[in-house]
């Protein structure tokens, strides 16, 4: 499982990085989304993989922390998901506004100059 997930994180981030380095703004938006999946999964996996043990406690009694998944990375990622939605929205708006104003969807607001 660990091998699969780390390979998945690797592929997601490689796709993300490649897209972020592209010249078209839509590519960069998609790239950022993919990168945020990769990073969220990465942070999440720092709590180790524990299938079938969600951090939902019984009401009372002794609690053995080793029986549950680590809640801290989950809490971190939960807010990160919502925030990454917000940044995507922001970038999207900047993108369409820039497209409207400059007439091009190049990230610099102008086409690469002919050399």
């Amino acid at each position: 499982m660990e091998i699969i997930l780390s390979a998945a994180i690797g592929i997601l981030s490689a796709s993300g990085i490649w897209l972020v380095l592209r010249p078209r703004s839509f590519q960069v938006v998609i790239g950022l989304c993919l990168l945020s999946y990769a990073v969220n999964l990465f942070i999440f996996s720092m709590g180790r993989l524990t299938p079938g043990a969600p951090p939902i406690m019984p009401k009372g009694g002794f609690i053995d922390p080793t029986l549950y998944a680590d809640p801290v990375p989950q809490a971190l990622v939960l807010t990160a998901i919502v925030i990454s939605f917000a940044t995507t929205a922001l970038f999207l708006v900047v993108m369409i506004a820039s497209r409207g104003m400059t007439g091009t969807d190049h990230v610099d607001g102008k086409e690469r100059s002919q050399q």
């Binding site: 660990e2 091998i3 997930l5 780390s6 390979a7 994180i9 690797g10 592929i11 997601l12 981030s13 490689a14 796709s15 990085i17 490649w18 380095l21 990769a38 990465f42 996996s45 720092m46 709590g47 180790r48 993989l49 922390p65 080793t66 680590d70 809640p71 801290v72």
Partner: peptide, 25 residues
């Protein structure tokens, strides 16, 4: 991109497979 992806994958794998240590969680 491939270098970055491989690096992240390696780090993720190395960390995921370490024994759990007690933490604030």
């Amino acid at each position: 991109a491939i270098a970055g992806g491989l690096g992240i994958a390696a780090i993720a794998f190395a960390l995921m497979t370490r024994p759990v240590i007690t933490n604030v969680g």
